[in-house]
């Protein structure tokens, strides 16, 4: 396999990891007000992502760092082209981060309300905008951006609701399950619309027919989404989360499959790539380091595996 293909795969993996992990963080951030009655439950909901959201965010930082190192022209082109959306993504990530970190440190209810607002807006903005940006990369149309954004938000909401159902007990868990079922009314149609567009993205622009495996990925992503809803209905929280996580991962795989080999209009990977020395060196370091990263992050999920209950303060 060529080094550019290896690095495109690594970057796709990092972005997909970000979608899967921060997907439920964003969902939980947006759903926190709807799923909780009172401060104790609010803490319970946000506590599900408390120990892990920052580590999850590093998947984005790594994805973008890897793009910078391996495909500088892709990195520079994408960030300067989507300038204002990226500014808003950054604003979102900033207010969400300080909201989550400071929420437990402030003393007044009004300060907590500001933190909650930051968490809400800061989760919704990146969720919508990343969906819109990638949809625009594929289709270059405003409608597609809207569909992509709505799908991304609804998928994060559903994924987050399923995550809360998996990680909590009591009334919050029941509410999260109901929310997941209600949200599926938006997520499923949006998913069908957005995912069915992915394989045909190149074809519409006069490119070759999409390979069968991209169709397969898109179809599998839709099926996994439907399965997630069905499993939530049956009360199988663990399997439901596995299904929504798979759906997000398969969506990421289909998306990057469709972006290969030209991640930006008029820019192929070969043109955007760094030299073979840089790619080779980074490959070795990445191969050694990535298993450790995945290992200790998995361990941190294991440490915090128990369900949370609301704790009156």
């Amino acid at each position: 396999m060529e080094l550019t293909t290896v690095w495109f795969t690594v970057i796709a993996f990092l972005w997909t990891g970000f979608f899967v992990l921060e997907g439920f963080d964003f969902g939980v951030g947006m759903l926190a007000p709807a799923l909780s009655r009172g401060e104790a439950e609010r803490k319970q909901v946000l506590g599900t992502i408390g120990p892990v959201w920052d580590g999850n965010e590093v998947w984005l930082i790594s994805a973008v760092g890897a793009m910078f190192a391996a495909f500088p022209a892709w990195y520079a082109g994408m960030l300067s082209e989507f300038y204002l959306p990226i500014v808003l993504v950054l604003v979102g990530l900033i207010v969400r981060g300080v909201g989550l970190e400071w929420r437990g440190k402030v003393h007044h209810a009004s300060d907590r309300a500001w933190c909650d607002l930051g968490i809400l807006i800061g989760s919704a903005l990146p969720a919508f905008l990343w969906g819109a940006v990638f949809a625009d990369l594929l289709h270059d149309s405003v409608t597609a951006m809207l569909v992509g954004g709505v799908f991304s938000v609804s998928l994060c909401l559903l994924h987050g609701a399923v995550f809360v159902a998996l990680k909590t007990l009591g009334p919050v868990r029941a509410r999260a399950r109901r929310a997941a079922l209600v949200l599926s009314a938006v997520a499923l149609p949006a998913g069908v619309a957005a995912l069915s567009g992915i394989p045909s993205a190149g074809t519409a622009a006069g490119g070759p027919d999409a390979p069968v495996w991209i169709w397969a990925l898109a179809l599998a992503a839709t099926a996994a989404l439907a399965a997630g809803v069905a499993l939530t209905w049956r009360g199988r929280d663990g399997w439901a989360f596995t299904a929504t996580a798979s759906s997000v991962a398969l969506t990421g795989a289909a998306l990057f499959g469709a972006l290969w080999p030209a991640p930006l209009p008029g820019l192929t990977l070969a043109e955007a790539a760094s030299g073979p020395y840089a790619l080779q060196t980074l490959t070795w370091i990445g191969l050694i380091a990535l298993p450790f990263v995945v290992g200790y992050q998995a361990w941190s999920y294991w440490v915090f595996r128990k369900r949370l209950v609301a704790q009156p303060s």
Binding site: G50, P51, V52, W53, D54, G55, E57, V58, I61, S62, G65, A66, F68, A69, A70, P72, Y75, S274, A278, T281, L282, I285, G286, A289, L290, V293, Y296, Q297, S300
Partner: peptide
């Protein structure tokens, strides 16, 4: 880009995960 990518991979993951 290389030191930036290494920073994320070798340092930021360590920092954020273990601080959590």
């Amino acid at each position: 880009g290389a030191p930036l990518a290494l920073e994320a991979l070798l340092a930021f993951f360590l920092e954020s995960t273990f601080l959590g």
